[in-house]
Design a protein around this nucleic acid. Structure first.
Lengths: 274, 274
DNA sequence: CAAATAGTGTCTCTAAGACAATATCAC
DNA sequence: GTGATATTGTCTTAGAGACACTATTTG
């Protein structure tokens, strides 16, 4: 029957996509949080570490490995809404930002079958995680992240939580339009292609962390300028002179009339995002 | 049966994703080309217009409307490879770059059912399109694109090809991490949610067009610096002083010993991408 | 008071934009 | 020669980074 001669109604009712094979569609979320370490000196401010949430797999495949939180897309939600729901369910916290990272669709990426994933990076403030509390025996834990380029051109991704240390070896495949993709050479206890997703997300986060707007999502509503500065320094792994940082960030913040107290040094004024 | 007690082999063979409903997965490609208009004066260089490829729908739904080229993901290819294949099939030309735009997954976006789309922007040089040739009666045509913000905050997307003029009204929903999303208020003869995809892709293209690396993909291997400058000016809709453009772009190009000829003015040296 | 962070002021250098001036071609 | 683009050089200004200096807190 010639399609052009059908009415739209006739056409839609006769339409059947089931004859095409379909992939399962999931999302994986790289949830970033900046964790402050314990003070070793009452006067010094605490050091920060960038960390991500991983879940220990209790089922095959990759049983016992650590994986990104995520799950299947439902028919009544958008991909972003799905990511929001999954990270809320798994971490118990609400992300303040969701950044699309890309689609991971290598045909063999999942041994269970044809499963593609749209990855997101999310940003979660330490404050909201503290409110939920943590459970040391839980299958979901925050791993400190370290990502360094070696001399031979490969990159080592190290994720550590207490005694657990996961190390993956990756090789950069190229940067296009602000997204760097990686080939996994060794996965080191990280499930599926998640080491590559993490590396891509971290690279993307570093890109956007030059933009001050992104930094606020890591902090509570009121913050000091040095806390904001430490967020950027932690993500980008750089050192900034406070005077210059204050000058540049000044147009993005408004001061409040509150101050910190109890630190072993001059109190700092609290600011809000403008 | 407790999953933890199964071997991986037992588990994989018993695994069945068919119990979950799956979406159909497609890609849509916003193929950009810079088209040079006819000279009205033998001395003047031709003006440039940014254009995109649209295909006239010959079937329901949206019969007779214009849509982005695209198609279904196959089990043996990645999303990006799928986009490459589809644009090659439909335009007959090979894109020099594919930029991920985002996933469009509103549950009701396609009246045929649950179909999500990963959109890409591709960049195609006018030279390669000219080699293929055009067919005025063809269902695939290059539409000049115009996108302007109105006083009331809405944006008008105008696509024109000869007598055909498609006009969509969109409203910005916000910019996050360099991707601006739009709500479609009037689609004006553009099928599905493609007006929104086009607007998002154009906004993203403008973002990356500040980066000189992107500009080369619109041109043949050897080009003049003013051709390169006109590419950036056309995309960003701005005017740049030639002296300043040359200075900034100089570190990205290498000069050849060839020159243009036949223009009604001083010949220009041809350059290559460094 | 010692040590740490908070906060201000200023110097230098670089890069972007504006603009002036010269060069070279087709007709 | 005219009118267009090609190409080089320089002036001004805004912004980034470096750094010196003062302020304020807790033990």
């Amino acid at each position: 029957m010639n399609n052009r001669n059908q009415s739209e109604g006739e056409y839609l009712s006769s339409y059947d996509f089931s004859k095409y094979e379909k992939p399962s569609v999931t999302t994986d979320i790289v949830a970033f949080m900046i964790r402050s370490e314990e003070n070793e000196n009452y006067k010094m401010d605490s050091k920060n570490r960038l960390s991500i949430l991983l879940v220990k797999r209790a089922v095959h495949p990759f049983l016992g490995n650590w994986a990104l939180p995520g799950g299947f897309l439902r028919p009544d939600e958008t991909m972003e809404r799905c990511a929001f729901r999954e990270i809320t369910e798994e971490a118990g916290v609400t992300p303040t930002a969701l950044m699309p990272i890309g689609v991971f669709s290598e045909p063999k990426r999942d041994p269970r079958g044809w499963i593609i994933s749209n990855a997101y990076a999310s940003i979660i403030s330490e404050e909201s995680v503290k409110q939920v509390g943590g459970d040391d025996a839980s299958d979901a834990q925050w791993f400190d992240i370290d990502f360094a380029k070696e001399e031979d051109g490969s990159s080592i991704l190290t994720l550590s939580y207490e005694d657990i240390k996961l190390q993956a070896v990756l090789r950069e495949e190229g940067t296009k339009f602000g997204r760097t993709s990686f080939r996994i050479e060794q996965s080191g206890g990280i499930a599926f292609d998640h080491a590559g997703i993490i590396a891509t997300a971290l690279t993307a986060l570093r890109e956007v962390a030059r933009n001050y707007e992104t930094l606020f999502d890591f902090l509570p509503e009121r913050f000091t300028l040095s806390a904001l500065q430490r967020v950027q320094e932690t993500i980008l792994n750089i050192q900034i002179l406070p005077a210059n940082f204050r000058r540049k960030v000044s147009e993005y913040v408004v001061e409040t009339d509150e101050y910190t107290q109890g630190a072993g040094h001059r109190p700092a004024k609290l600011y809000r995002k403008k």
